[in-house]
């Protein structure tokens, strides 16, 4: 079932002298099965938007519907929604609280009413999906490394078996190796488990490499909503919003200016390298 956002606005401090428009007339349709990247500068409203998607925040105006039902409705079961739309917050390792990893991962499925057996199976399954080291299943959550904690926290949401998985800056504060491990894992979840992924990030490289659709947020509005190739072709506008296009694209753009016939739409380093190689071969 798709998630539909219809003209959502969110205003903070409406009753003071300094009202802040965090979201301004946002309309989006999120069909099942997509891998979507949401990018935007700090304070562009991307995190706020994500909290609306599973009913943690109520829009000031506009409606969000899931399964054809308005989620702000009084008799709509928010828990049911959260079962289907999993949200992994920024620095999710800060929410770990149980005595060991396995118990913490069990927290979510237990809350949504799974039986003990189902809960444990779901927890094992989730921990395996995030490639969490097996010998640490019963270690204290405070003994883990940063990357391991993050995996455990993501598993905690994954164990609820959501159809939609929203990840808010899942790579923040990790080293490059850790980043790609997490992103590869997310891409695998999308491909193999068929989960709809919404990846919030401010890193263009992350987004360009993995997603099939990019939503650019700027000052609470949706500035672009298209394929990565199409979105990153608007490099000037993106720069005005404080966003940079991926590094490989910058290089091919410079080379094209110098008269080398590289592909301006090459998103990743490999694609760019190939197109530059082809172009150079042609010039010789």
């Amino acid at each position: 079932m798709p998630l539909i956002l219809d003209h959502i606005s969110q205003i903070y401090n409406a009753d003071t002298e300094h009202p802040v428009k965090a979201l301004d007339d946002v309309s989006l349709v999120i069909p099942e099965g997509q891998f979507i990247g949401v990018i935007g500068h700090t304070g562009s409203g991307k995190s706020t938007l994500m909290q609306h998607l599973n009913g943690l925040m109520k829009p000031t105006s506009g409606t969000i519907s899931y399964n054809g039902q308005d989620i702000s409705d009084k008799d709509f079961d928010k828990k049911e929604l959260r079962k289907h739309v999993g949200l992994v917050f920024q620095y999710p390792e800060h929410q770990l609280f149980e005595t060991d990893v396995f118990a913490d991962v069990c927290f979510g499925p237990k809350n949504i009413g799974m039986s003990k057996k189902e809960t444990e199976l779901a927890a094992f399954d989730a921990l395996r999906k995030v490639a969490f080291p097996e010998d640490l299943y019963y270690a204290s959550v405070f003994e883990l490394s940063g990357g391991q904690k993050r995996r455990a926290a993501i598993a905690g949401v994954l164990a609820m078996k959501p159809d939609f998985l929203i990840l808010d800056e899942p790579t923040a504060g990790l080293d490059p190796v850790g980043r790609y491990e997490i992103l590869d894992m997310v891409a695998k979840l999308h491909k193999e488990a068929g989960i709809t992924i919404i990846l919030v990030s401010h890193s263009m490289e992350d987004v360009a490499m993995y997603v099939e659709r990019v939503v650019v947020m700027d000052h609470g509005r949706v500035a672009f909503d298209d394929t990565p190739k199409e979105v990153f072709s608007h490099s000037e506008e993106l720069e005005e919003m404080g966003l940079a296009i991926p590094e490989p694209m910058k290089i091919t753009k410079k080379l094209i200016e110098l008269g080398i016939d590289a592909d301006p739409g090459a998103l990743t380093a490999t694609e760019a390298a190939d197109s530059i190689y082809e172009a150079l071969k042609k010039t010789k």
Partner: peptide, 13 residues
């Protein structure tokens, strides 16, 4: 607020 929201997202009540 953040932690409460994170746990709510995990089905806490």
């Amino acid at each position: 607020d953040r932690i409460m929201k994170a746990q709510l997202a995990r089905g806490a009540d």
